[in-house]
Design a protein around this nucleic acid. Sequence first.
RNA 1: GUCCCCGUCGUCUAGGGGUCUAGGACACCGGGUUUUCAUCCCGGCAACAGGGGUUCGAAUCCCCUCGGGGAUGCCA
Length: 481
Amino acid sequence: MRVRFAPSPTGFLHVGNARTAIINYLIAKKNNAIMILRIEDTDRERSSTESEQSIMRDLAWLGIKWDEGPDRDGGYGPYRQSERLDIYRTYTDRLLSEKKAYYCYCTREELEEMKKAPDQGAESYIYSGKCRSLTEKQREDFEREGRKPTVRFRVPDNISLTVQDGIKGAVQFNTSNIGGDFIIVRSDGIPVFNYIVIIDDALMKITHVIRGDDHLSNTPKQILVARSLGLPEPEYAHHTLILGPDRAKLSKRHGITSVETYRSQGYLSEALFNYLAMLGWAAEGGEEILQPEQIMSQIDLSKLSKNSPIFDFQKLKWMNGIYIRKYELDALTDLFIPHIARAGYAVETVDRRHLENIVSILRKYCDLLSDIGRLIGIFLDEICTPDEEADSILKTDEGIQVARAAYQFIQSEINETNFFSSLITRMPTSLKGKSLFMPLRAIITGRQKGPELDQALPLIGFDRCKKRIEYCYERYGKGIP
RNA sequence: GUCCCCGUCGUCUAGGGGUCUAGGACACCGGGUUUUCAUCCCGGCAACAGGGGUUCGAAUCCCCUCGGGGAUGCCA
C-alpha cells in the first residue's frame, strides 16, 4: 500500500490540508504502508519554494513523517510536478496522436463570449467542442495567427462511471455532465492538475488516494484519463471538508487556519494533531485524548463521517489545555521558554529548576503556551502594580490595614527562611480569612486571582515580597493614620 | 442552473429496525474542592430537519420537500 499527500505550495499549510495529511499518515502507519509527499506546483504563478518549505516544516512539526518526497528519494521521483514535465509530455503526445486529445485554439476571450451566449445559462456552460475536429488547414491558419493552443481531453459521451469511494461508497457519474472536454495542457505548455495527478499516482504506484471531497467531482475526469492511457486506477477515499461556524468552507475570516499560526500562538503539535485526527469520527470508548498510536489503531476510513464538521476552536483550545497540563514538565518548560521570552522576560537568566517550579504552578492557568506571558510576572517582576481589582481592594480599610501590618512585619520579624509561612500565619493583625488573604494577595501579586499563596510565595522570594509590600505600603498604607 | 455529497443536542459525535424515557465530549448553567481564580470532581440543560411510505415496530430502510456543502477554472 502506498498513499500520498500532495499539497500545492501556494501558501501556508492550512488546517484542512493538515487533516488530510494526518489521515493519510495514520492510515499509512496503520497499514505499514509508504507515505509520499508530492509537491503539485504546476501553477507557476502561485507556487513558491518558501511555501513548499513552510509546508514541510509544518508537517514535520505535526509529527508527520513521509517516506518519500522532494527531500527523500524513494526511486519514484522527482517528487515535484514541475520537474516531471518531460514525463507528462510523452503522455500528451500519445493522447494527441491517438486522437484522444486535441489542440484547442479558442482564446480566453472567445471562451468568455461563448459563455455569454443566450442559450447557455452562464453557470451551465460546457465547452462546445468547437476545436474537436479542426482540419489541418484551420490549424495552420490559427498557428499563423500566432495562437498558442491548449490541449483538450476528448470526453466520451454518455458513459456512466462509478467511483468506489472508501468513505462515500459508490458514487455514480455520467460523462455527459462532467463539463465537456477539459483542458489538460495550458497554452504555455504546462499541464494541469486534473490530468497529471492520475499519471503521477500511477507512476508513483499510489494504491490509495485519500483527499478532500472537493476533488470528488474531478475524479471521473481523472479516471477517464487513466483509462485512455491504460494506467491503473487507485482506490479512492474522499473525506469531507472542514467548515467554519457559518458552514462555509473554513477560511481565514473564521479564525486561524494556518498551522504555523497555531504553533506561534502556543498550541502544542500533539493537541492540534489529536484534534484534527479525531475530527469526523469518535473512538469506540468515546475517549477524546488519544496518543497517535491509539488513534492509529482505531481510525478507519469507513468510520469517517460523511458530513462536514465545523471547526470548533473552543474544543481545540480545551484540548490544548489538557495537553499542557499532562505534558512532561521538563519538555513543557522548554516549550514555554520562547513564549516567556516573547513576553519580554530574560528567561535565560532564570534558574532552570526555579523555572520548572513556576511552570508547574502556572500550567493550570494556561490553555495556550502564550497564556504564560501575562501570568509569569507574578514570579519574575520586581513589583506587581495592582490591577483595577487589586487596587480597589487595597483602598478599603482592610486593605490599608493589611498593607501596614505586612510592612511592619517584614521590616523586623521575618526573614528569608520563614517569611512565607509567617506571612500567612503570623501576620500581626486581627484580620483573618478572606479579609486578610485577599489584600495580601493583592499586595504580593497585584491581582485578586491567581495561584495559591502558600505555593507561590516561596517561588516569588523574600526580596520581591519585601519590595512589593513596601511599594504597597507607600501607595496605600501610609497617609491617613 | 446542472452534477455530486450530506442532514442526531449550539458544536464534534455514538447509534445501522425493538436493548433509545437517544449515550459521550466541548461550550453553557448549577454544586463541591480551592479562604481567590484556574485546575480537579459531581450534577443539569440540550438533538433524531419536515412530510410521506415500508414494517407489529423506524433516529436507523425507501421516496419527496427543505436546508447545507462541493464541483462546474488555461487553480489545486
